[in-house]
Amino acid sequence: MNAEAVAFWVLGTVAVVGAVGVVAAPKAVYSALSLASTMIALAVIYAAQGALFLGVVQVVVYTGAVMMLFLFVLMLIGVDSAQSLTETIRGQRIAAVLAGLGFGALLIAGIGAGVTGGFVGLDKANGAGNVQGLAQLIFTRNLWAFELTSALLITAALGAMVLAHRERLEPRKTQREMAIERFRDGGRATPQPNPGVYARRNAVDTMARLPDGSDAKSSVSATIRGPQTDPAQ
């Protein structure tokens, strides 16, 4: 039982648990966080396998940027919409489970039949350093692919801008107009009270106290507050 084996089993478990969490979590945010944990576990595995550069890139780009992007979009799109557990398509669950099991079995059988050798190891390839070796490959042999993927990145950025753009159909409301609108419907003149102010705690979920000693419901975000059963609120 050497260090690598230990690392593999621990990290492997974490990765699998995270993957199952992605699929099984009721709330979308939980899925995103599970995926982030899987990715970090994989990053460590990369590093253990001699792909140091990739491990770092995995953490920085994949987990850091891509998963955060996922979370931003989740927030935009309905972070509190929970998945109803009933399946709309008839037989999809059973079929999916069966197909998944069959597929997995086939893959594992294929791998078992195909992989016969052991590790050669990357000591020689990483001789001048992993980054250098990788750079050697990317900028000489795979240069064309590199250029294409950079073009792809630019295109993707442009595409995102185009897709998310919303045409302004009416003239922009000035601040004066927005203020007038707000007060016409009886809106608050002052900002919302901060939570936890005038109180013993400084937590975001502790409600502020009104002058008459009651809690100010509006000081805590509705999301954190959760559904209130009291109709008076």
């Binding site: 398509i89 197909a99 597929f103 086939l106």
Partner: peptide, 28 residues
């Protein structure tokens, strides 16, 4: 043709599985 993307994904997965199976059988 149900119109649901997920059932199409199911048939894709099943098809890929069949393909892998065929390759394995051919190799064996």
């Amino acid at each position: 043709q149900t119109g649901y993307a997920r059932s199409y994904a199911l048939s894709m997965l099943a098809g890929t599985g069949l393909f892998i199976g065929a390759v394995l059988i051919a190799a064996a």
